[in-house]
Design a protein around this nucleic acid. Structure first.
Lengths: 108, 108
DNA sequence: GAAATATGCAACTTGATGGTTGCAAATATA
DNA sequence: TATATTTGCAACCATCAAGTTGCATATTTC
């Protein structure tokens, strides 16, 4: 499961990190100041995000700037498309119709 | 974290369940036949998905038909929108420009 | 009514995960 | 060169999650 984006975004702290870094690239230290946990804990979250390429790093001197990499997030969006038809209104109504038909036939 | 959709879709088996049920509503037994694990394991996955309302149930006699509920998945899509500008080409190029500017200023 | 079927719940085990602490490596600064 | 800063890695611990097994409940069928 290592490098799995679904696993990566399952943690609320990691989602917060993504939101922060998507707004502006940051170093681990700067990032850790936004959270109650230790720097190392944040660092481990960064590692998970970097492992699945949601973050990319750019070393500048002794600092490492992490920035958001949209490619993998786009993959998640692509995964979602298979469900999109279910929440577009016209298809949603068709679904409901089919569910009702199923329920009725089950009762026979 | 109970009832969290990000947690729910983190598991690959649960994602497979969602795909199957989005295509056609099913009972737990029918669903379990698609997997190597036990019926109870699948049942627990169903419970997780139902707890966060990704699945809705419809009891028919002694069977329970689970069907896909798009509302929560739509919420996930909504969460994704905050990142979408990053992978639309024009904004992506702007991001790259800003990243480069940052790198240059860091070197001073 | 007894047996079979469909399902959920509880207990237990094992492995993964998130957190902490300590330390080492690389770079900047005095 | 000695010291401070930034960061990553490894070890350890506590909790959570996924799986199995066993059992109870509700419904259908014989």
């Amino acid at each position: 499961m290592k490098g799995d984006i679904f696993q990566a975004i399952a943690d609320p702290t990691r989602r917060a990190i993504l939101v922060l870094i998507a707004a502006q690239s940051m170093t681990p230290n700067a990032l850790a100041e936004h959270f109650d946990t230790s720097r190392q804990a944040v660092s481990k979250h960064i590692k998970v995000l970097a492992d699945c390429e949601l973050l990319t790093q750019n070393k500048v001197g002794r600092e490492i700037h992490y920035y958001f990499n949209p490619v993998k997030m786009k993959e998640l969006d692509h995964w979602l498309t298979q469900f999109k038809k279910h929440w577009e209104d016209r298809f949603n109504q068709l679904d409901q119709l089919l569910i009702n038909l199923n329920s009725n036939s089950d009762e026979n």
